[in-house]
């Protein structure tokens, strides 16, 4: 699905990713954990194509294509989805309106006809139910006046609408209470299939009780320094990151 090799990225001259390697196959769920400042959100931003970052070395191959050569929107159209850590509030732009544009531009990119208004609304109903997002919220301005939990559910709602191949969840659990965490996780789990994959970036093991990973990676100082089965997350929760730093 995606293969990241020796990725180096910097912002304002400061190197954040220092030779990151990661491979995720279809049907897999990978968790990336790590202390503050390790580069977790940078990885998410670089994959989505945020232009503030400079890629100084390495490659990212996504479904056989050079991801780094693609514009942000083309990455999305190819099937990459980033659930933002801090979803942006966009006053005046209706959630469903922009999603219809997004969906239709993606369909056009793949040579498909636009979705009919009727099918689209049916899809909105189906997918908003999945994350228990009030249909009224779905049609309101993007994230405007949403609570923290509603914003994150809205991210998963958008993900459900766009049906990505690879979803990158950037600290989707931050700011969520236990009920919202359950709902968001249920949504992610319901979308899981042998054809898609998911990278869960998180600070805490808590989320991984709900979204069970196949592999857990530790990102530290811009590199993956340790990978292991889901039990690694529990060990990190118990022992912190210091033992990993010490073992380097």
């Amino acid at each position: 699905m995606i293969k990241i090799e020796n990725l180096h990225a910097s912002i304002n001259g400061k190197e954040i990713l220092k030779g990151l390697d990661l491979e995720v196959k279809a049907g897999e769920v990978h968790a990336i954990m790590g202390p503050n400042g390790a580069g977790k959100s940078t990885l998410a931003s670089v994959l989505a194509g945020r232009e503030d970052y400079e890629i100084t070395a390495g490659s990212v191959t996504f479904l056989g294509k050079d991801l780094l050569e693609l514009a942000t929107e083309d990455r999305a159209r190819e099937g990459l989805f980033l659930a933002f850590q801090y979803p942006v509030e966009i006053p005046g732009v209706s959630n469903v309106n922009f999603l219809r544009t997004a969906l239709n531009e993606k369909r056009a990119y793949h040579g498909q006809d636009p979705i009919s208004a009727k099918d689209f609304m049916a899809l909105v109903r189906e997918k908003s139910a999945l994350v228990e997002l009030d249909a009224k919220l779905a049609s309101r301005a993007v994230n405007e006046g949403f609570s923290g939990g509603e914003k994150k559910r809205n991210e998963i709602f958008q993900m459900a609408m766009l049906e990505p191949k690879l979803a990158v969840l950037d600290e989707t659990d931050s700011g969520l209470d236990i009920d919202a965490l359950r709902i968001v996780s249920q949504g992610v789990n319901a979308l899981k299939s042998p054809e898609n994959a998911c990278v869960v970036i998180t600070h805490y093991q808590r989320l991984l009780d709900y979204i069970v990973p196949d592999v857990v990676h530790v990102l530290y100082d811009g590199k993956i320094v340790k990978s292991g089965p889901k039990e690694l997350a529990l060990e990190l929760e118990e022992r912190g990151y210091d033992w990993i730093k010490d073992s380097l």
């Binding site: 989505a48 929107e73 933002f84 942006v88 531009e105 993606k106």
Partner: peptide
Amino acid sequence: FYLRARGLSAASAKTLLLQAF
């Protein structure tokens, strides 16, 4: 960026934001 990350072209994203404004 948020809109483009959902698959909107830069031009559509700009238009949408200007209309909203």
